[in-house]
């Protein structure tokens, strides 16, 4: 997977407009900002969640709770894989999640297994009154019955293609890109 053709699907401006729309949709779905908690899934979901939080605060005023969720320890494939994935930090608002309206933010929704893991982890933290799933890109290909509530863009790609969300904090740019691995001769 070294050689890949890479095309940019969404440029910075387009991603920002989509995030703004998603921010408004979250407030609409929640009937305001009361009880709202935004939780980004490590790693790029965290940066997207922070951008959505800023967008909401610009329009609704400051004080939106947010945090991050690392689902590594809740993965369903840990028994199968050899090298151990790096465990990131989960940090939830100090007031907890009980009775709150929690929005899980992730970059790409694919198999749905990450969202499943995130919900299990959240249940171990407490009992939210509601959980919404918010993703920038839904690329299809679900392996478990999970559906998003707020979607930035639906794209249809081949199973072997990779959808990459790039964020300035980690990648130096804000964009959505599609990488197509070059097929090897013997494949």
């Amino acid at each position: 997977m070294t050689d890949a053709e890479r095309v940019t699907l969404l440029e910075e401006g387009a991603v920002e407009r989509i995030l703004l729309r998603m921010a408004r949709e979250i407030v609409e779905r929640n009937d305001g900002t009361q009880n709202l908690i935004l939780l980004g899934i490590q790693r790029r979901g965290v940066e997207l969640s922070e951008r959505i939080r800023e967008a909401i605060e610009r329009e609704e005023g400051p004080g939106i709770s947010s945090g991050s969720l690392d689902i590594t320890l809740y993965r369903d494939d840990l028994a199968q894989i050899g090298p151990r994935p790096v465990v990131g930090e989960s940090s939830l608002p100090i007031e907890g999640v009980d009775g709150r309206s929690v929005v899980i933010v992730d970059d790409v929704l694919f198999t749905g297994r990450t969202a499943r893991a995130a919900m299990n982890e959240l249940m171990d933290w407490g009992r939210p009154s509601r959980i919404l799933l918010c993703v920038l890109v839904d690329r299809g290909g679900r392996e478990v019955p999970i559906q998003p509530d707020i979607v930035g863009r639906v794209v249809s790609v081949l199973p072997r293609q990779i959808v990459d969300v790039r964020v300035p904090e980690l990648d130096g740019r804000l964009s959505v890109e599609i990488a197509t691995p070059v097929r090897e001769e013997n494949e």
Partner: peptide
């Protein structure tokens, strides 16, 4: 030996 397969699949 199962690592490569898992790496390809990721968790999505």
């Amino acid at each position: 030996e199962q690592a490569e397969a898992a790496k390809r699949e990721g968790v999505g």
